[in-house]
Design a protein around this nucleic acid. Sequence first.
DNA 1: CGTTTCATAATTAGTTATGAAACGGTGCACTAAT
Length: 588
Amino acid sequence: MGATFRTASARAVRERAMGLEGPRTGQGGAARLREIAADVFGWDTLLPEQLTAMEWVLAGEDTLVVMPTGSGKSAVYQVPALMLSGPVVVVSPLLALQRDQIAGLPDGDRAPGAVAVNSDLGAARTEAAWEAVRRGDAGFMYLSPEQLAKDEVVERLAAVRPALFVVDEAQCVSSWGHDFRPDYLRLEQAVRRVGRPPVLALTATAAPPVRKEITERLGMRRPRLMVTGFDRPNITLEVRRFLDEDDRRRALVERAATEPKPGIVYAATRKDSEFYAAELASLGLAAEGYHAGLRATERARIHDAFLSGAADVVVATSAFGMGIDKEDVRFVLHASLPGSLDAYYQEIGRCGRDGRRALAVLHYRAQDTGMQTYFAARGAGRDTLSEVADAVHDRRGDPAGLDELRQETGLSGNRVTAAVNLLEEVDAVATGDEGEIHPAPGVSPGQAAEQAAQAAQAHRRSDKSRVEMARAYAETTGCRRRFLLGYFGEEYAASCGNCDTCDEEGDEEGAEKGHGEPTAHPAAATYPVGTEVRHEQWGEGTVLSEDRDRITVLFDHAGYHTLSLEALATRDGLLTVLRRPGQDRSAT
DNA sequence: CGTTTCATAATTAGTTATGAAACGGTGCACTAAT
């Protein structure tokens, strides 16, 4: 992606080479890391996964860490920071999260200071923050992707020569970068322009295609991957399907009222979050509705009430969750189908962090897919792409930055950025070292817009197929845990015995069969989870999960599809095996 | 894509039917008025 025009500056290459030599690598590293973790941060033990990832970071390797919340992801950059020769840039999506991270750092003399630069700061405090970084008083600088989209910020950052570029909550690159916060897809340019330090991406939830998108979109080179297990065996999984909307509402209210507290209910709309909160409050519960339409003070109040235990239930849209680190949440109920299993797993992962029993119930109606596909179907249109492609082309003699393109087209900043991202994805434009947008030689604006529109169409197809995967989870007759873990690339052969479908199987066929292996179609052995395949029509893809009689495949360009094993067995050549799981897949 | 809202019509004076239009989620940064 974008490889044709990527301009690697000589300085970036030289600095990268310097980062790889010296006394940082080797056996001494681990002992020193442990020492710093204990002396400065007060952590007496480091998990082997943490330590390994830290060593990669010290060795200057680009690294993607996928570890659950609460397992010490932040330590992976905080501890090595003391052994690096420059400041650490941390990209974080929410200002509240930046504040939490800074507040969580130790105070001691030996701990590096931290600053956040954002729109909350006045001019004087912004200057003070930069000065602290320049003097070396602040070892961490927290920024939003929008800050890094500004030329001034990038130039000042380049001058302080960051030693590491961290992207926290890196799933945002994939989930928000395409439309909502397009500056997430411009981080690769920012990394390059600040001198191309090593990149560390951190996330709690990322299915294999999301991991691929993160590493590609951030321009990570031969990325190291650290993934710990996804399974959360203490969370009971259940789906309840309804035909009637009123039935669903009653069932959800009853469930939220009767299950042990505290809990979170996720609703699809702001209106629903208020409806359910009012219903629960009328039953005498301390219930609060939460969504992005509330005033900041009100949101903070509810957030605090939930953390302190003053609120039993928060009924929220997807706005609630990031930064919620509460151990004793007993349930997460969904009042509607989520837009993807990535979102779903992230949301249900907020219960049962103390390891005790917790419950995740999805209340589903077939009509729910409507709104989710509506969300998935939006994106940059042909008109916008043409307009932006024309503007870039017109300025080919004197290439414009994003701000100028916004003025010249009269389009909003987000729309221009999203359009440029798509044009850049198809190599129709490229971003230079000053942030200026060059048209690719030999590509007409018409061709550029056409290719970008096709790329946008591909994203929409992919998003819609994610909705279909969420629906498939809701409708599967097999073990729900096996389905979910398969989606995240983890093989789980047995049935879990802790989801509604496993319970039913036990009821029908006797207890001894409840936890056993289901009888799979003989063709299942041909396509184990993780197999890379090629389909006659849909091209190349990866097997994600198996049910008794069918497999689900994620195709690189056609999204998720479910295939009947019977059909595969009878039609030779329909699905060819390219590579089996376990065969080495070299990083690129 | 599905649901809700609103205007209009048809019905006969308070209510209901119909069809078109609007709406639906996530945050930062920035500006302007207090």
